[in-house]
């Protein structure tokens, strides 16, 4: 493309420079009369939306069982590697976390763990008041994280969809599941 070099074009450019700077100055100055967006925390509490990314919790499914199946996806999604857990299972083969630890002194509240979670177990809540005088207290274990409710997705139960037999839900009893195949049947 040919570079424009005409005198009028140059003048236009210079005018544009000056004009844009003046607009900027005026734009900033006009904020003298707008309200502050920030609030006087802690005297005033800010309004936090439900999707605010604050303190992380582990939720339970509608049956009151732990939703977390210790699949490790949150841990692998975590950019600061601040989640660690170990899988274990009960007699019926239901997976859950033996321990589930979040080091909140490393957490950046990015919410990638929540996005990665296939069971809606890990959720971020509108609570950011987590300061501690002792850094060690920022390490939360499963008992600190677990809440007694389903959080944002009240009706979802992973094991209803997984096809895995666990206590209280045998093969074929899940959503959209056929009864177990009878291997001995020759019927078409």
């Amino acid at each position: 493309m040919k570079k424009k070099t005409g005198l009028f074009y140059q003048m236009y450019i210079w005018f544009d420079y000056i004009y844009s700077n003046l607009v900027t100055l005026w734009g900033v100055l006009s904020h003298t009369f707008t309200r502050a967006d920030t609030v006087q925390y802690p005297d005033q509490q800010p309004h936090l939306h439900p999707r605010f990314r604050g303190r992380i919790v582990l939720t339970k499914d509608p049956d009151g069982e732990e939703r977390c199946v210790a699949c490790n996806l949150c841990a692998s999604a975590c950019p600061t590697d601040c989640i660690s857990l170990q899988k274990t299972e009960d007699e019926s083969g239901r997976w859950y976390a033996d321990y589930f630890r979040i080091n909140f002194s490393r957490c950046v509240y990015c919410g990638l763990c929540e996005e990665a979670c296939p069971t809606y177990a890990i959720q971020l809540t509108p609570d950011f008041e987590m300061a501690e005088y002792v850094r060690q207290n920022m390490v939360y274990e499963k008992e600190h994280l677990l809440i007694n409710g389903p959080g944002k997705h009240p009706d979802y139960s992973f094991y209803a969809h997984s096809g895995k037999a666990v206590s209280g839900r045998q093969k074929g009893e899940g959503v959209n599941e056929a009864q177990p195949v009878d291997v001995r049947s020759l019927m078409p």
Binding site: V28, L29, H31, T32, T34, R35, A36, D37, T38, Q40
Partner: peptide
């Protein structure tokens, strides 16, 4: 600056 940036 605070006033112009809508903070305190």
């Amino acid at each position: 600056l605070g006033i112009w940036q809508d903070r305190h």
